[in-house]
Amino acid sequence: MPADLEELYQSIILDHNRRPQNFRVIENATAHAEGLNPMCGDQLQVWVQMDGDTVADVSFQGSGCAISKASASLMTQAVKGKTRAEAEGMFDRFLALVTGKGDGAELGTGLRAFSGVSKFPLRVKCASLAWHAMKSAVAGKTAPVTTEGPA
């Protein structure tokens, strides 16, 4: 397999695809958002339990490719326990990472595994779908987010 594909499908991404974390519904969540990718029909839902300004719990469910599912799984692990502002900051840094505009230095090794996405512009939407939904849920928005709309 070519090196750029090996980089895209790193083992941590394949592992999270097979065994996604926080793949569940949060009953009575304070916020919930749906992410749609109209180009491929993938959809996933993100639930957020806020405790004041803190993301006390976050989960997701849905169907998608390995990139979108692993990204959702690692996202839930990353933003759990963070404040709203911290979660939004991570969104910005993650988007910069997958579009090749940032090195993701502050994101931790798990999320940095998505650096390979920047070489595959078509897959940026897959990697960022759950993050868009998380950002929307944390902000208390209810309309579904799509990968075709503004970030």
């Binding site: 594909l5 499908y9 998608g64 490719c65 390995a66 990139i67 599912k69 595959f120 897959r123 897959c126």
Partner: peptide, 8 residues
């Protein structure tokens, strides 16, 4: 997933 398959 088909997207991963077609990418490979």
């Amino acid at each position: 997933h088909p997207h991963d398959l077609s990418q490979l």
